[in-house]
Amino acid sequence: MDLPVNPPVQPMLAKPVSAVPRSGGYAFEPKWDGFRCLVFRDGDEVELASRNTKPLTRYFPEVVAAIKEQLPERVVLDGELFVAQTTPEGGERLQFEVLQERIHPAKSRIDMLAGKTPAGFVAFDLLALGDTSYAGRPFTERRAVLEEALAHLDGGPCFLTRITTDPDEAQDWFQEFEGAGLDGVIAKPLDAPYQPNQRTMLKIKHERTADVVVAGYREHKTSTPEHPLLGSLLLGLYDHGKLQHVGVSASFTAKRRAELIEELQPLVCDLADHPWGDWQEWAIANPDRVPGTQSRWSQGKDLGFTPLRPERVLEVKYDHMEGRRFRHTAQFKRWRPDRDPESCGYEQLEEPVSYDLGRILSGGDRHE
């Protein structure tokens, strides 16, 4: 492979902000919820690289084939791999958990999933085209060349992301596109070059709160018997009287880790007396992804946890749900001694209005 920009390349990153910026010269894009992916194509040679430069090529043979068919002969693109599936309402929605299934050691399973749940690729930046590197050019120029190079794309599986310079339209996208599984909005400085591994962009993500039950904890990797430290809190929500595992809260200072593990000791109980006691007997991952069970993502890791009587309620901040769990680690906000644990159910969670991903990928709203 001999391109103006060759792998490995770390992608440009974004820092979080609380709102869509109203000044400063930005272009806005939907924030995709998939695998960040840099595409390197030099004729019949195609490499897909992850955010941390690890190879993704073998996991997505159908995307490699689409790149050879749809993208320019010599090109380097920044974008996102995704899987979309049809919803009960008839539209399409991003499915991150289905996408995760593609990272599998068996070629036979990869090939099966490539046909059953094929992935797509959405491009949102250009690093090189032909014999020219555009990495040092301002985003306005990179985008203009990218639009011309990918103008022929129609219907996937390779797409060009939507873009606007109107903050009001970006705010509308932030509200509406979550219903299709998107993660928020990205703001890119119009005059900035492509800066690998630098947080040049801004990201605006959804933030919500929920009251959850603390059902257990795992110890931190640096914990010792003399100085125990809490690593993560295991969180639950009730569904028809059954406590479901909904995610974890894990970002604490060392001082707070020591305080929390001491504070929770009076609640430690035997696993046999815990709502999740029976689940410890399961040998593989299960639909509820309960703690202590193995999956291909966790082989060799210590997944044991200390069960706690589910008597304490915690308010956490989270961005959005993936199925019945928090998509990312929830942030500890405050204890809620005024809440009854059994009152903490899924009905408190905000449900985004359904939105068809196909309308976003096709730019359909602009033509209605």
Rank of each mutant, 00 (worst) to 15 (best):
D2E: 11
D2T: 08
L3V: 13
L3G: 14
N6L: 12
N6G: 14
V9E: 07
V9N: 00
Q10E: 11
A19N: 03
A19V: 09
A19Q: 15
K31V: 01
K31C: 02
D33E: 13
D33N: 14
D33S: 06
F35C: 07
R36I: 06
L38V: 11
V39I: 05
F40D: 01
D44T: 09
E47T: 05
A49I: 02
S50C: 04
N52F: 01
L56V: 08
F60G: 02
I67K: 03
E69W: 11
Q70H: 15
L71S: 15
L71G: 03
G91E: 06
V98R: 13
Q100F: 13
R102M: 06
I103A: 07
A106W: 15
K107F: 04
K107Y: 10
S108R: 10
R109P: 04
R109K: 10
L113Q: 08
L113E: 00
A114D: 02
T117K: 10
P118S: 07
A119I: 09
A119Q: 03
F121H: 04
F121K: 02
T132E: 06
T132K: 12
S133K: 08
Y134H: 11
P138A: 05
A144T: 12
V145A: 14
A149N: 11
G155H: 14
P157E: 05
C158T: 06
C158A: 14
L160Y: 02
T161I: 12
T161P: 01
R162D: 09
P167A: 04
P167D: 08
D168K: 12
A170I: 01
D172W: 10
F174Y: 11
E176G: 12
F177Y: 10
E178A: 10
I186E: 01
A187H: 01
K188Q: 11
D191Q: 14
N197Y: 08
R199K: 10
M201H: 11
L202W: 05
K203V: 14
I204L: 10
K205R: 15
V212Y: 01
V213G: 05
V214R: 00
T224G: 00
P228N: 13
L229K: 11
Y238T: 06
G241L: 07
L243Y: 06
H245G: 04
F252M: 08
T253S: 14
A254T: 13
R257L: 06
A258C: 12
E259A: 08
I261D: 00
E263H: 15
E263Q: 15
L264K: 05
Q265K: 15
H274Q: 09
P275I: 10
W276F: 11
D278C: 00
Q280K: 10
V290E: 03
P291L: 02
G304L: 05
F305W: 02
F305Y: 09
F305R: 00
T306W: 04
V316P: 01
H320A: 08
R324G: 03
R325V: 10
R325Q: 08
F326A: 03
A330G: 02
Q331H: 10
F332Y: 13
F332Q: 02
P337I: 12
P337T: 05
S343D: 13
S343P: 13
Q348I: 09
L349W: 05
D356I: 11
D356K: 03
G364L: 12
H367K: 14
E368L: 14
E368V: 09
